[in-house]
Each structure stands twice: as structure tokens, then as C-alpha cells.
Amino acid sequence: MSSLAVVIVSGLSGGGKASILRALEDVGYEAVDNPPLTMLEEMICRGDRKLAVGIDARTRGFDANDVLNAITRLQTNPGLRIQLVYAWADDSTLLRRYTETRRRHPLAPQGVVADGIAAEVVLTEPLREHADLVVDTSGLPIANLRRLIERYFGAGSDQARMVVSLVSFAYPKGLPREADLVFDARFLRNPHYDPILRPKTGMDRDVAAYIKADPDFAKYFSLLTGLVELALPRFVQEGKRYATITIGCTGGRHRSVYLIEKLAKHLTSCVTAKSADRTDDPCWQVFVTHRELASEGNGNSFLSDRPVARRDESDLDRIAQGLSVQA
């Protein structure tokens, strides 16, 4: 008998929780937003269909540790499969969203919105630390957020496999907060200083050849893949459903992009080999995101919904256009 899927969605006010709940509703979940915390366990245990529950600072009796304790008790029920999703955005994005909607922050009804945001970050931090999936909606188009939720929780998702997200980024713009593993590619030779290669990206062949020509590239990539191959099976053994591996460089356009693409192909080949040898190996699904290329509006590089197994180049041109994510 299969277990009943339950997704608890929390996070920062204005971080996209309501959008995630709507996306879950579209893939077959019954969505309930902001029920009293005292009713949470009874409501979930009595459910007979997939359920998505929104809980945040507005919830009556909200306490992050109480929520985590309730989840721990629910996870002892073999008939339930509980997952916790935490939605957030950076301070500037949250402030802009509150300015646009003219809503009051639940923790600063008469005060400064920034103070309410700071208080809520502290209040919900335990949930972020224990979340199965952390979603950064800063600058994420609503259409891509919906497809992200469909990827993880929709009918086509493979619940037996851990989802591995590979993310390239630029160090000056900050580390991805959802990262489980972070690698630094800034010591490799930089195509930025070649005027012909500068406007290109790590997905172009001549850029790739330039980076591979670094005398330390092969050794570095071998060490990187060795560590990843050591960590991922242990993540699976621990029951981890999502893992994020990030590689950063200075601009997030060349070295990190190429390394993420190469790592993605490597991990995909590992999945293929394992599947051929062991039909019971849960393995993992691999997806790619190039954060800085996406933020530049480079449509052909907005790959947040691209599974690596899909090799057709035309897939890179299927870009979603959407509005900014709202709570």
C-alpha cells in the first residue's frame, strides 16, 4: 500500500508560499492554508488524498519547534510521506513585493516592514534548516516556479529518486542559500579576459575548450566528481529527497557554467550505468540551473526546468515568460 503524500509549505511572508500552494493544487493536492497549529496532526491523519498545508507566522499558535515536533510525530506513521518546503526571497525582493501590494507584514502590522522581515527570518529559521526543499523565489518567474513544483511533486515525478539540482553562480552575488555542496572554480583560467570569448558562455564549445586547457582542470574535475559520487549515495541512504550542488566563479557565465554542464553529463551517465546494473537502485534525477545567466534574461540559458537527460538542443529555446512570484 502506497503512502499518502503530504507537503507542508512554510517560509517568509511574501516569499511565494501561496504560489507554491496553488501550484500543488494544480497537480492534484488538496490545499489548506493557515489552519490552527493544534489541528494540523488530526487534519493530516484523517486525510484520504494528497494534502498541501500552508503554515507561517500568521498561523494561530505558530512556533517553528512545535511544527517540527508535529512533523516528527507524523513521520512515524508509515501511511504518510511528509515533506517540508520552505519558500523565501531576499530582503530587497520582499520589500518590493510589500510595496507593490501595500500589504502589512504580519510581524510588523504598525511598524517597519524591514523589521518584520528580520523578525520572521529568526522565527522561521528552524524550519529552513530542516526543510526537505528550500525554494528561493527572488526573481523567479511564476511560470518557472510552477514547473519547479510540478517537477518535484507532479504526476511525472519519480518519488523513489532523489532530485539533484546543479547550480552555477557568481560569488559576488552571493552563495545560493539552498546549497548542500559548494565548489569554487575561480582559480581556473578565465575566458572573461579573452575579448572573443567574453560575450559567450560556458555552454559554447570554444569557451569549454579554453577552460579545459587549464593544466589543473582535469585533476580538479576528477576530485570534484569523486567527492560528489561519495556524497550522493550517502544522501540517498539518509532518505534525503533533494540535494543542491553549486559551483561558483567570478561572473557566473563561463567556468562555473561549463563545470555544471560537464558535471551534469557525468552524473547522468552514472545514473544510466547504475540503472543497467541494478534495477533496485533508487539513484537520482539531475536538473540544471545557471543562476546568473537566467537573471540576465538570457532565455537560452534559463535552464531551471531542464532535466539533463533531455539532450535535444531545441529544449533550450523553450523558455517560460511569467510575472514575478508573489506570496
Rank of each mutant, 00 (worst) to 15 (best):
T38S: 14
I196Q: 14
A185M: 10
P195E: 09
W88D: 05
V135R: 03
S3K: 15
P176S: 09
T244C: 11
N144H: 14
L133I: 12
L223Q: 13
A185W: 00
T279R: 14
Y210R: 00
G16Y: 01
T201I: 03
L181I: 09
R128M: 04
I196K: 14
P307H: 12
D132N: 09
Y29Q: 05
R58E: 06
Y242W: 04
T272Y: 08
A108W: 11
D66M: 12
I44G: 00
F217S: 04
D66A: 15
L181W: 10
G28M: 13
M162N: 04
Q326W: 02
G79V: 07
R291V: 03
E129Y: 13
G322S: 15
N34C: 11
A170D: 03
R161F: 09
M162E: 00
V182F: 01
N77S: 09
G11W: 00
S301Q: 05
D56P: 02
K50W: 02
D132A: 11
H254S: 04
M43D: 08
K212T: 04
N65R: 15
L323T: 15
A31Y: 05
E25R: 06
W88M: 02
I142R: 07
T289G: 02
R253K: 15
V286H: 01
L51H: 03
A52L: 11
G202Q: 00
A118L: 11
R97I: 03
A87S: 13
D90T: 07
P215Q: 06
L94F: 13
A118E: 11
